[in-house]
């Protein structure tokens, strides 16, 4: 059993998790709840083992490096972090429905990593510029932020769905969306998740700047990737201020959570493929 098999298995288990959470949501099959959680937890552990094993394999291949340095590895880590954050939210807020909106992101990420053409799964050694502990810190912190923003976007979608249904009909308890947490709770969790993401994105940008400075002597060069991470950061800063000082909430924040995540995706993915820059290592 090698790491790519373990990670490959995770793709399917996250698909199954998605189905379980969707069933929970659609059929209100409450008894499935613990099954979904346990299944997801096991899938998560398998993925953790897979990532760990990949690390070990890199040592066996004589290049010893953290499994976080190309597109494939970062997408896998992204999915891992989404599940991690989701499980914490499930545990803290005692609600499973959110899984139907968060776990699919992890599945999509894994499916992309596994099946997209042009993504190499090989363990390749690090070119000199990438041999830095700051790079590892940079990737880890950025992806914790990105994953939080993914979960926030899922919550935003949930909020909007529930909100539309509540304005359309008055007796919604029997409806599908009636089982979602109250709007107020959703709004609160969305905000908290974004705040959490903002902190990590800030740390991610800073560690990236320190890395750039140790490699090239410039901590900021307005390279497209850097600039997009800053644009994303501005967007979330706007969201925080609009909420905190202008009392924005509800639908607007939900839209901003979705919009912010679109910017995240562009920073993470779009820049590598559509624009050129220092970070083009991700495109192999």
């Amino acid at each position: 059993m090698d790491s790519s098999q373990l990670i490959g298995i995770t793709t399917f288990t996250y698909l199954f998790s998605t189905i379980l959470y969707a069933a929970l949501f659609i059929f209100k099959a409450g008894r499935l709840g613990p099954v979904a959680t346990i299944f997801t937890l096991v899938a998560f552990l398998v993925q953790t083992a897979g990532i760990g094993l990949r690390w070990l394999e890199s040592y066996q291949m004589g290049m010893g490096r953290a499994p976080l340095t190309n597109m494939y590895e970062s997408v896998v880590f992204f999915a891992w972090t989404i599940i991690f954050i989701y499980l914490i939210i499930e545990w803290k807020f005692k609600t499973r429905i959110i899984g139907a909106f968060a776990v699919p992101f992890a599945f999509l990420a894994m499916a992309y990593a596994s099946f997209a053409t042009g993504i190499s799964k090989e363990i390749t050694p690090l070119i000199p510029a990438l041999q830095s502990n700051w790079l590892i810190a940079h990737v880890v912190t950025c992806f914790i932020g990105y994953a939080a923003f993914a979960v926030a976007a899922g919550l935003g979608i949930m909020y909007l769905m529930k909100n539309t249904s509540e304005t359309r009909q008055t007796t919604n308890d029997s409806s599908l969306l009636g089982s979602l947490p109250p709007l107020k709770t959703l709004d609160d969790i969305t905000h908290k998740t974004m705040v959490f993401g903002f902190l990590w994105l800030s740390i991610g940008i800073i560690t990236g700047a320190i890395w750039a400075n140790s490699a090239w002597g410039t901590y900021w060069s307005w390279d497209p990737k850097e600039t997009w991470s800053l644009i994303t950061w501005f967007l979330y800063a706007i969201t925080l201020h609009a909420r905190y000082t202008r009392g924005w909430g509800g639908t607007r924040i939900a839209w901003l959570a979705i919009f912010g995540f679109v910017s995240v995706i562009f920073t993470y993915y779009g820049v590598n493929f559509l624009l050129a820059g220092l970070h083009s290592y991700g495109s192999n």
Binding site: W222, P224, L230, I231, F234, I238, R246
Partner: peptide, 17 residues
Amino acid sequence: ALFTLFILATTSIIGTI
């Protein structure tokens, strides 16, 4: 502040394209 941050975010895009 919201205005400035928004303008900064949007104009920053130009230089990435």
